[in-house]
Computed example of a mutant assay.
Amino acid sequence: MTISRFRQLWTHRYHKYSHIFKAVWLGYMAALKFLILKSELKKGRKLIAIIRTEHFGDIVAAEPLSRHVRSLHPEAYIVWFVKPAFSELVSYNPVINEVFGEFCVTQRRTLLKTGVFDEVFELQFKNNNQCAKCDVFTDNPVAEQRGINVLNYFNFGNLLNVFAKTSGLLPVDESFAGDDKPRLYLQDQHRLKVDSLGVLKPYIVIHCQSNFAPKDWPAARWEQLIEWLTANYNYQIVEIGLKSNLNVSTTSYTNLCGKLTILETAEVIRRANFFIGLDSGPSHLGNATGTYGIILMGALVTFSSYNPYSGGYGSQENAVFVRKEGLACAELSFEFVQDEVKKVLDR
């Protein structure tokens, strides 16, 4: 072994094990905090954990379950576990008592093993329960017992139904019967931020890149679509997301990528006349805000056809899915997408 390789190996091990040590320590500190909290709760009041740490579209899709858990346990102290980057999606939810910003899976596993929580509802399965630094996965026993995993989860319904079943809140052969429209809890600060942007109505919001390449539509076709839209309709085009991969020069286009928080993005979508995007986080914001959605979708891994949404997008009362059975999103032609968009805008 060379000196360089030796240094790399031990540098990796140092960072890995120092991370694990920190995670375990934070887990026990959190357990102590919740033990103290529990001792101060009224006798008989349950301490409940809801675990949905990522991704932000999944957290939005799972929101109805927070209200469902509250209806089952009206007096409970409910804690939602989430990655800090997505905490704003839960922070303003009035049925949640506390948001726990999770450091990593090892911290959570350490905390839960103490048994401080009276009930735990885990709205995810093994592939969502990984810490790359720790190189650790943790299983969800309910999902394991029911055979729900990343290869088959859409066989159990939309995301809301899947999460309800992985948590044990819903029998595996039933569908969620409550109010299934996800809600966002937008604040004045989000509205004021969007006021300051000066985006003129009417406008269409577009979202062109997901966090999973097989869900995407080629940038060149998005550019064609924008050119066609601005030439034929009186709409401004506003792009949202983390970053843009488009080359657009028209003055009718505004790039807000990377400039907004998640809930500020939701407020931009809420004010739009239409949302045109992919099966991705922002489409769930569109569903929650009630903006009509035109969703480009395709076959995904083992699913030739699927529906991730509940609410108005799920029923397609407030959305249209642009897809062809068995084709990936990238395989949808510009002409096909153009025709489907035209049907909606001309309606």
Rank of each mutant, 00 (worst) to 15 (best):
F163Y: 15
W222S: 10
V301I: 07
F274I: 05
P94Q: 14
N161V: 08
Q338Y: 05
R70N: 03
E267H: 07
L37D: 01
A272E: 01
L32V: 10
C208R: 14
Q224V: 01
P308V: 06
A319S: 15
S175W: 09
Q338G: 02
W25Q: 11
I20P: 01
V99S: 10
I59M: 08
S315R: 15
I3W: 09
A23M: 12
S333N: 01
S91L: 14
L151T: 09
K243R: 14
T110S: 11
L296Q: 05
L170P: 02
Q316V: 04
P74V: 12
I148N: 03
E267M: 09
N161K: 09
D346M: 12
I36L: 12
H19R: 12
S91H: 05
E102R: 10
V82M: 08
V116E: 03
K201M: 07
G312I: 10
I294Q: 00
A328W: 04
I206S: 05
A30M: 11
L256H: 08
T261C: 07
L246N: 06
V205W: 01
A132V: 15
Y203E: 02
E340M: 08
E227I: 10
N255L: 06
Y28G: 01
I237D: 02
N97S: 14
V60C: 05
K46I: 00
C329R: 08
G258I: 15
P308H: 08
G286H: 03
F117E: 00
H284A: 04
A319Q: 08
Q224H: 07
L123T: 01
P214D: 11
K22I: 07
D58Q: 13
K38T: 03
E325S: 10
Q107I: 06
